[in-house]
């Protein structure tokens, strides 16, 4: 995945409230269209949450990667 250029990294590891999805929504609201955001999460709920919200909000989930001790989600703001 190293060829994907990430514009913003949201390190939400250890966040239970507001949690990684809220951190992503906050970042997407501030990002420009076309920007790519990486979210790091240790929250088990993110695996269903983030893809569901990204789909509903009409953005693009580029990838989900298992890292050492956390999951990385790569999301592109498309609208």
């Amino acid at each position: 995945m190293s060829e994907i250029k990430v514009d913003r990294v949201v390190d939400a590891r250890g966040s239970h409230c507001p949690g990684p999805l809220m951190e992503l929504i906050k970042t997407i609201r501030n990002a420009k269209i076309g920007e790519v955001i990486a979210v790091y999460s240790t929250d088990s709920g993110s695996k269903t949450d983030i893809p569901r919200w990204v789909e509903k909000a009409g953005h693009q989930l580029i990838g989900v990667y298992e890292r050492e001790g956390y999951t990385e989600f790569i999301v592109k703001k498309v609208k």
Binding site: H16, C17, G19, M22, R52
Partner: peptide, 12 residues
Amino acid sequence: SPLPRTFPHEAV
């Protein structure tokens, strides 16, 4: 709710 749930953390 801004999230798919009523609260950020699943258990809560």
